[in-house]
Design a protein around this nucleic acid. Structure first.
Lengths: 249, 249
DNA sequence: CAGTGGTCTAGACCACATC
DNA sequence: ATGTGGTCTAGACCACTGG
């Protein structure tokens, strides 16, 4: 929507021209100089500014559109896209959505919150250095009133200073982070573990029952944002993905 | 390497020309008409045959190259690529490789093989219709002599008639299928279950221990090829994936 | 209607790897 | 040396859609 500084587009002279243009615009988007919603200059403006033919400019923009960084529409032009909310196979980024897709009613409860230096136990669980300040939360998510998943999370206030003023009364921390943080890397791990007695009691299953443990950590440019452990009662949950040998189907 | 029938490339008149060309060639590859290693006609030959400009032909081929279906090299030309062996996050397509990457010695043992109509139990487990002929196998894979994963598999002889003459003495069925079948779709599911007593005994764990169950089914053009259930002792195994908001990192 | 992107052409020059 | 793909241009026509 907002106006755009076309002069911000500068080429580095390395590699094919269409790729220089693609990278120049991509970098402006990823650096936040052109936030989501920003208008990207039309092809003819970039042609003149950069001295390239329209085909070459178009090739750069078409590739950015394929990658999902920009949205293009005839007449109304090109705008910077919002980062995608969900993600291929394993992505269960939003638990409210996950429950909603099962057709069940969602609710959640914060069991505990502690801001400050991580205890030795929490530090070990999330592989944190000693004396790192974090916000540590445990939550229980419900589907139709029944326990759905147990969440154990740390948030790094260095990356998210706003966390101190957020109560998470309206929005669970996972969704709040999705809306308020920019992440560039994530790591997922899946394993099967037996529920500890305290966990089993919260999830209303028997101690020792098999559970699916999904661990996710996210970073912005190697600065950690959050780490979470999601414990799903086994049997009731499966993560499914479908694809072909050359990519998603 | 082999000669190529350029006349096999036929357009359907639907959508942009470059996309018609891309789909025509993609379909020849996926159908096996042009198997891996086949030479794809050079751009000028496709230009003449299809009456398109070179830019348009190039656009189609460049996209197929980005998708990994063909390999292009100056002077030597374009050939159909071999399907990729591995696959992003969850793909543990070859158990020997998986064990090798852990730095452990691999071995395996066939516990059972039965060719013919699936028993009611097997049919239910793999969601097969009644009176479907399959080869049913159970195997145990070892890492450094210790049980690593329990495999339970059905292979459809309609898709893989050679299975009748294969003893799997040299190569486990998963790797044999990778080498001898063409698949276009796969589905994965991951869940956590408790080991049944017989499974636990084979894996040398306690009955009821949490295990990671990886189920995979593969098809070629909606014809089923194989379905497998891999039972990994919990705790010892994690599946890890790394990516960014716009794709793999 | 006019501005935007989508496609396509004809031709050109270049880089590269094999012959 | 030559055949191949990689890039780029200048220009054209069309499709869509907001003013």
């Amino acid at each position: 929507m907002s106006a755009t500084q076309i002069d911000a587009v500068t080429l580095d002279g390395a590699g094919p021209l269409y790729d220089q243009i693609r990278r120049a615009i991509r970098d402006l988007i990823l650096a936040g100089t052109w936030p989501p919603g920003t208008s990207v200059p039309p092809e003819h403006a970039l042609m003149e500014k950069l001295g390239a033919s329209r085909m070459t400019v178009h090739r750069a923009l078409a590739q950015l559109a394929r990658e999902g960084l920009i949205l293009r529409r005839r007449r109304s032009g090109t705008v910077v896209a919002s980062p995608p909310a969900s993600h291929a196979m394993l992505d269960i980024l939003s638990i409210p959505e996950e429950v909603g897709e099962l057709g069940q009613a969602y609710s959640y409860r914060i069991l505990q919150r502690r801001d400050g230096k991580a205890s030795r136990e929490v530090a070990a669980r999330f592989e944190l250095g000693r004396s790192v300040n974090v916000t540590h939360l445990t939550l229980l998510h419900f589907a139709d009133g029944a326990p759905h998943v147990l969440e154990d999370r740390v948030i790094h206030p260095t990356a998210m200073p706003q966390v101190a003023d957020e109560s998470f009364a309206q929005t669970p921390p996972g969704d709040w982070l999705l809306q308020n943080s920019l992440w560039t890397q994530a790591e997922h791990a899946i394993s099967a573990i037996a529920a500890e007695p305290d966990e089993a009691e919260l999830l209303k299953i028997e101690a020792g029952s098999p559970c699916l443990l999904v661990e996710r950590r996210t970073w912005n440019q190697s600065e950690p944002i959050t780490a979470v452990r999601l414990l799903y009662p086994g049997g009731r949950h499966r993560f499914v993905g479908r694809f072909g040998p050359y990519g998603a189907v």
